[in-house]
Design a protein around this nucleic acid. Structure first.
Lengths: 149, 149
DNA sequence: ATACGTGCAAAGTATTTGCAAACGG
DNA sequence: CCGTTTGCAAATACTTTGCACGTAT
């Protein structure tokens, strides 16, 4: 557990530093969103970030949240994830070790993360054959969780 | 090419028959949408279906299109695909042979299909370990196509 | 004949944008 | 100070829903 916390802090600091070095100012909204994202284990929606910050006593306008999410995604610091349902989710891009994919229950909407080295190797091989310069990938498994089944 | 056309007709017929046997009537909108989807090689958005049908001289209301897409998705005859950008895409669910995934250019929005047996085997293995009853999966590779790079 | 299917328009969400005021460096 | 960032409200984009009318069986 200790390792996770240390890595999260790293992402937050690295992100704020990267933006600062690129000439961006880190105002109230940006800092609040980055710090909240750095504390998560899995992806969040814009609305969940909005609610989380309000609950923390650091309310930020929803428009600012979307602007921060766009900026971080464009800089490659955040990954936008579409699990269906028409709501975008976002999560911090950390190192290789914490790379994972998602498993969604179609019935209750529950989302879980999973990781598999063999799957990553198969993806690497496919990516080299595409003719594209592949920047990232998403895998979503859809089904029914134990509770719903 | 011949094989593709034959399979497409199969999907169209199988779909209309399945609906009929389940007690659904096949009116103008439903038949038009199913026939158009059956002719595609890759996924389409609701708007593309709307435009395509208008161009064919068989205009269908956008609401009916969404209703047909929902029904077919629920029946497992159609797969809903989210490639980011907040627009849902849909494609016919055909046999194992035509199963494929998608490659998206982040710059120009171009979408291509790819298939890889080894990737499918890796996914099968992961799916058995999840504790979920996995109904399907999506893989999206994001990057820059040759033209944009 | 009688449900089911369809189109239109209105409503509902998620997200983006315009703009004036607040703020960081 | 001065340009960036922010919040609000309005605009937009996609999708869903209510309802009256049409149609398949």
């Amino acid at each position: 557990m200790r390792a996770t916390i240390i890595k999260s802090v790293d992402w937050t600091e690295r992100t704020l530093r990267t933006l600062h070095e690129a000439g961006y100012r880190n105002g109230f909204a940006r800092r609040a969103v980055v710090e909240l994202l750095g504390r998560q284990d899995c992806c969040l929606t814009a609305q969940e970030i909005f609610d989380g910050l309000r609950d923390d006593g650091r309310p930020v306008g929803i428009a600012s949240i979307y602007r921060v999410l766009d900026l971080l995604t464009e800089k490659g610091l955040l990954q936008r994830i579409d699990l269906g349902g028409g709501v975008a989710r976002y999560e911090a891009v950390r190192g290789h070790e914490e790379h994972h994919h998602h498993l969604v229950c179609d019935d209750c909407g529950r989302v879980e993360a999973f990781a598999d080295d063999e799957l990553e190797r198969a993806l690497d091989r496919v990516e080299r054959r595409t003719g594209y310069s592949v920047a990232g990938h998403d895998v979503v498994l859809r089904g029914s969780c134990a509770a719903c089944r």
